[in-house]
Design a protein around this nucleic acid. Structure first.
Lengths: 85, 85
DNA sequence: TTGTGACTTTCAGTCCGTT
DNA sequence: TAACGGACTGAAAGTCACA
């Protein structure tokens, strides 16, 4: 980890946003997703906010729970989408 | 981690094989790849053999070093390719 | 329904080496 | 050139109480 120690890694934020989007597409809550992939609800929350640098196996679990192939989880524009403007 | 504790995660093996393939496509050694992404030589070796459960940020580093978008690193057939038959 | 800080345990990741 | 092992440090995993 050569990145800033205290800051959440910038690369994790768009990933988390993408996860949140896929989850909402399914119309399920973080808790429902949590149940589906066996990861803690608060852990899911951390992922969606880009606070967690999850490992590959958890990416796979998440992909399965979201019913998409793993590569779809990494298939999003590189830029961070702020709120609107 | 609900997986078997001692066994290397089966899902990591095809991933590692894919990494090795992409690396060889570039015609570079593990050590050269190591230098490009800043990860240890022995760690790269472990990844390619499916022994390592790397984190997302390292997936990104690897993708950059291999000069492919991150999603390509997860874009391979789900089945493990044994040797031939 | 989700965000958050704090916490302990487990393992990611590095560095030394040998085969 | 790569597989593999041991020992070590810091970060991810996983959970909790509470806002």
């Amino acid at each position: 980890m050569t990145d800033k120690p205290n800051a959440p890694n910038h690369a994790l934020i768009p990933f988390g946003q993408h996860v949140a989007k896929l989850r909402k597409n399914l119309g399920i809550s973080q808790e429902e997703l949590s149940g589906r992939c066996g990861l803690d609800r608060t852990y899911i929350s951390g992922i969606e906010r880009g606070k967690r640098n999850l490992s590959l196996t958890n990416v796979f679990k998440l992909a399965k729970a979201l019913d998409v192939p793993p590569k779809v989880l990494l298939d999003y524009p590189e830029e961070v989408v702020s709120h609107d403007n």
